[in-house]
Nucleic acid binder design. Structure first.
Lengths: 250, 250
DNA sequence: CGCCTGCTTGAAGCGGTTCAATCGGGGTGG
DNA sequence: CCACCCCGATTGAACCGCTTCAAGCAGGCG
């Protein structure tokens, strides 16, 4: 199974073969496989390791006591949980799966060894952390100031861009294993209204949905609708170089 | 001038006198004083140091091209900019001041020296990073799923709690140097509606406003209105111990 | 077959926005 | 010292984007 995190990291810094072997080995030691709809970790729990998502989709969320739910982020293959943080911390939110998920639990010692002996890898990982924060800020803007149409369009643009960064797009299409209710909880809308917005996007020829997949026939137009500026994803600082990980999308 | 960051850090880990002297010295080297309404750093710029806010209020924000603005966070005395991040990064948002602000620019070398030689301080700083991310997530929930009344109440609760953590509350009162338009941009509402919500909070006896200050006569009731749970601030993991920094609020 | 989950549609209602006008206080220049 | 101005707070009224409620529909699965 490809370590898609490496795809992203190599856009930031040229990793050595040694770096890559080390990360690959660290991601081998402890694997977890979960079914769709399972909780990865719940609010209030104390995580003992750092999650590296290898396959499948998950999401962070918080709920209010009366049932209102906000999805805070989607976790895609190649994403990292919350690294570099003190061991006694309590989760302030929960994480659950949307599809079957495979993840690696990175041992704290391995992360410390990266910080100590693999400076390039460490720098690349700090890019990851930076990007995670920037995405959360963009979501705050999305939910706070964009219209319903812009919100949905923006979310789709982001997901497509992030999947593209780890080689999980096929032409103008990619997976989208989300129900309309989940899209609603991610955008701060009602499921009914998400349905209507999706109809508009479809009738405008900007989105096609099939079999839990989406196709974006005119990405540029969709990005304009969304006022989407990919800079916040902090992807392309150095030119992405093709890499073994990119090619065989098994 | 007290380094209010130390107040927070000492709630996480017991710092040595050496740790404290080191941070104090690092915060001496390069100071910046700004007036109210000035830009600290703009979207697209590349910060060369890490900001430590010593005095006054500032805020992070993003704008859409048609002028819609979302305030993403408030920066209070004792807050840190975005540490531990790669030097070539570009800001994905802007920071501006609300009041006159004094800040220190921490040199990258000093931060590296902390990471290397001051493990307790480094751990405490990573708590800070954790808390910053958690606050951003809570804001996403706030704007996405809370009602207008809850949003405003929640924001006021958060500001009060954060100011209390650095010794900047006086009884049930604290500074609130925000216009209603700024409250609106922080909560994703219109200024007019913020006005109406504040009137309700006032008539319910939950908030009093005077001279850019607020008083919260019944904090418990306000927290219930807001559905405010302070856990996300990641403050009280270890008992806060009184400290020289806490006492003379000059 | 029958059920469950998710999608779709219609209609009514409301929370919040927008527009526009007024008010009030502090600062400035004459 | 006063007149003026400007910004922020306030109020009213009309409007609308989105929610809520409720019902119908389609597909997958035991």
């Amino acid at each position: 199974m490809p370590i898609r995190l490496l795809n992203k990291l190599q856009q930031f810094s040229p990793l050595t073969e040694n770096d890559r072997l080390f990360l690959r080995a660290a991601a081998e030691r402890r694997r977890l496989m979960l079914r769709a709809g399972e909780e990865v970790i719940a609010e209030g729990e104390r995580p003992t390791a750092v999650f590296l998502f290898l396959e499948g989709w998950a999401y962070r969320y918080k709920t209010l006591d009366d049932g209102r739910r906000q999805i805070l982020a989607f976790l895609l293959p190649g994403d990292l949980g919350d690294p570099d943080e003190p061991p006694e911390r309590e989760m302030d939110h929960s994480i659950a799966t949307l599809t079957p998920v495979t993840l690696a639990e990175l041992a704290r010692e391995d992360l410390e060894r990266i910080a100590g002996g693999h400076p390039t890898l460490a720098e690349a990982l700090s890019w990851e952390t930076l990007a995670r924060g920037a995405i959360q800020r963009e979501w705050t803007l999305n939910v706070g100031r964009r219209t319903a149409l812009e919100r949905i369009a923006h979310l789709l643009c982001e997901l497509f861009a992030r999947l593209a960064a780890v080689g999980l797009t096929q032409g103008s299409a990619c997976a989208l294993p989300l129900s309309q209710a989940e899209l609603a909880d991610a955008t701060g809308l009602s499921a009914v209204h998400v349905n209507r917005v999706l109809q508009q996007l479809r009738s405008d020829g900007l989105v096609r949905l099939h079999d839990r997949r989406m196709e974006l026939p005119d990405l540029t137009a969709l990005q304009q609708v969304a006022k989407f500026n990919p800079a916040y994803l902090h992807l392309h600082y150095r030119r992405a170089r093709p890499d073994a990980e990119d090619l065989p999308v098994a």
